[in-house]
Amino acid sequence: MAEATASLSSAAQPAAPSFGDRMFQALTSRLVIIVPYLWLLLFFLIPFVIVFRISLSQTAIAMPPYTPVFSLQDGLAAFFDQLRELNFDNYVWLTEDPLYFNAYVSSVWIAAVSTFFALLVGYPVAYGMARAPAAWRPTLLMLVILPFWTSFLIRVYAWMGILKPEGLLNQLLLSLNVIDTPLLIMNTHTAIFIGIVYSYLPFMILPLYSALEKMDYSLIEAAQDLGCTPISAFWKITFPLSLPGVIAGCMLVFIPAVGEFVIPDLLGGSQTLMIGKTLWNEFFANRDWPVSSAVAVILLLLLIVPIMIFQFAQARAQEQGR
């Protein structure tokens, strides 16, 4: 499209640009696409191919600690030989050891529960913001984004001081005589839920806010004039209209939460099983690169559907924005 306008406008010009100029322009418009494209191919897509390749190799006591597969160095015949010897042991191993299966299930479960609570907490905030006086909104929006600028690690760490048995929450509750014995929240699933909801809340609020702000509120007035109670007007009009925001927000929380490492590691203690933590331990503690690659491949397969939903929603928003 830009090229079309470019050629149109150059035709309208009194002096036609020289051949060199046109070559330069054609080249720059290609470079705009090619440079980021190549970068992402090299550093995003190819690494996944390598992960997949190594997940099919065998653990070896060497550096790098796996046996090579699919190398074309020995010619095509050797390549087909290797194809026959392909090794799915790592995947078999993942299905045989209940540890991994449980880690996947509990990751999805924890992420789903946290997403639900993030929606529960985020929706009223986003709603309140969207219906606040227009002059307030930029400030409120800024206040939601601001915590996102402070380190993720710091925000999780802040909760460690609050949730631990002798922490600030228990001190407060004990001094108010609400409880007699300290609550044990740290190193439980509850701590992980709190950590995920807290850390990802801005991701939930922002798409919800942008969906709710665009909404035409005279629709609700109309519904109420026609006899709808405020609650049924909410469920019949506000919520369905904010659904794109709900989907985007839930995906933005759910997908990264499934593979979360820092929160379960710092708040969940040693008993919690989450797949991001399993992958990390498999890699850094056991130094088993093929198995951790296999864990990553399956995690990716698990997330492909939600990622596709997210991509689809993004593409649609982009189309509408045009």
């Binding site: 550093f43 690494p47 992960v51 995906m251 990553a296 990716l300």
Partner: peptide, 13 residues
């Protein structure tokens, strides 16, 4: 939205 562990592992490899 990619979990960081996957991005990290793949880049390392």
């Amino acid at each position: 939205v990619m979990p960081e562990v996957i991005t990290g592992l793949s880049l390392l490899l």
